[in-house]
Amino acid sequence: MMIDAVDLFCGAGGLTAGLIQAGVRVHAGYDIDQACQYAYEVNNQAKFIAQDIETLTTEDVAAWYQPGNIRLLAGCAPCQPFSSYTQGRDTRQDKKWPLLYAFMRLIRGIQPELVTMENVPDVTKHQVYRDFVQSLEELGYSVWADRVSCVDYGLPQQRKRHVLLASKLGPISLIPKTHDTNPVTVEQAIGHLPALAAGEWDKNDPLHRAAKLTDLNMKRIINSRPGGTWRDWPEELRAKCHRKTTGKTYSSVYGRMQWDEPSPTMTTLCYGFGNGRFGHPVQHRAISLREAAIFQSFPANYKFAPPEKMNFKAIGRMIGNAVPVLLGDIIGKSLFKHINKV
């Protein structure tokens, strides 16, 4: 049985690539970030449409599905409104807040056999998510939803996400864990790559490129140990914000990864030393774009931009914002296991 899919909020195509890897036919992806079009189309042979999900009609999306095939609608809405960093703020003012309602509007109009979404674990704390699940159940979907540790499926990244699967065909669930006792480590994932200095790139791999460091940040990373914090530094190297009560809890910023552990969660700014625990375990630099792409399980041949338009920050944002390809593959395999049982 064939599964046809449309990927809402598709970005550079991490989820799409994983679904395709599992055997799903993804016909199109929608996103407002035009910079993602090259990566999405070149790697996935699917159509990228730069359009706001709130302006889509059910007819727009339904037209991509082939008669007789099982229809999957995937929608991994931007996570910023639901992130733990926004707790205590009125996130309803965030223009991304209504996007789950827009996703549900399309589900209600199309009524695909299968639905999936992925988001930060804290999405479950918000009324919009509870409304989303209730609406699915009212439409006759069986819903499985849980917090998933991606290391349990072989991703070399300590990424925890809330994954939802819904089906009109019967009860559904994610496939069992594959790596719950042997996580893939940073060293296993990137230890084979050539050494780089801050600001350098590998002439044989334009994506293996690291951001520059200021003189101050170079001193900081030299004084950083794997798994340590900025508290290990001499007092004169500490940032002003770290001396404030409000800044003392953010111990992972300016941190180094550890060789024998999975990486921390990749984020939009994962290529910056000061943005999280994104320092290389032993080299005096932040992780390269290639290393971030590996932690996100993008294939080595995945292209993010034409060679003449390699914008470092834009590519870093695409990689950091992506659904890991491996998670997309796990979701796809779960869907096939499900339809083969019904």
Rank of each mutant, 00 (worst) to 15 (best):
T181S: 14
K168D: 03
L174C: 04
S149G: 01
P171D: 15
D205K: 07
L207H: 10
P183F: 03
P176E: 05
S142E: 10
L165S: 08
N204S: 13
V148G: 02
T185S: 14
I190V: 14
H162C: 10
L207V: 03
D152L: 02
R147C: 13
L165Q: 04
T178I: 11
P156E: 10
S167C: 11
L193Q: 09
V186F: 12
A195T: 13
H192Q: 08
H179W: 03
S173G: 02
T185E: 04
Q188M: 12
P156Q: 06
E187G: 11
H192F: 07
I172K: 00
A145E: 15
H208C: 10
A198H: 13
S142Y: 14
I190S: 01
H208W: 07
A189K: 11
P183K: 08
D180W: 03
H192S: 14
V163E: 08
V151M: 05
L155P: 00
P176T: 01
R159M: 05
H208Y: 05
A195P: 03
V148N: 09
A195I: 07
L196T: 07
E200W: 03
D180Y: 05
V163G: 04
S149N: 14
W201L: 12
G154R: 02
T185V: 05
P171G: 05
P156D: 06
H179N: 13
S167R: 03
P156L: 01
A198W: 08
W201P: 00
D146M: 09
A189G: 12
A189V: 11
V163H: 04
N204R: 11
T185L: 03
L169H: 01
P156H: 09
I172R: 04
Q158N: 15
E200P: 00
P194N: 11
D202N: 15
D180H: 06
N182Y: 02
W201A: 11
P183L: 12
N204P: 02
L164Q: 01
D180T: 06
E187Y: 14
P194Y: 10
N204I: 03
G154S: 10
P156C: 11
Q158I: 01
H179Y: 09
C150L: 15
V151T: 15
I190L: 11
L196V: 08
L169Q: 12
Y153W: 04
V186D: 04
L193R: 09
N182S: 14
A197T: 13
H208I: 09
E187P: 00
G191I: 04
R161A: 04
G154T: 07
D205R: 12
A197K: 15
L165A: 02
I172F: 04
H179I: 00
N182G: 00
N182C: 05
V186G: 06
P171M: 03
G191L: 12
P171K: 14
P206T: 04
S167Y: 09
A197L: 11
H192P: 00
L169N: 06
Y153M: 05
Q157V: 02
L196W: 08
P171L: 11
Q157T: 03
H162T: 03
H179K: 10
R147Q: 12
A195N: 13
P194C: 11
W201M: 12
H179C: 03
Q157L: 00
D146V: 03
I172Y: 01
P194T: 12
H179F: 11
N182W: 00
K177P: 01
T178H: 07
K168W: 04
L193A: 09
N204H: 14
E187D: 13
G154H: 08
A166V: 05
K168E: 01
K203A: 13
R161V: 08
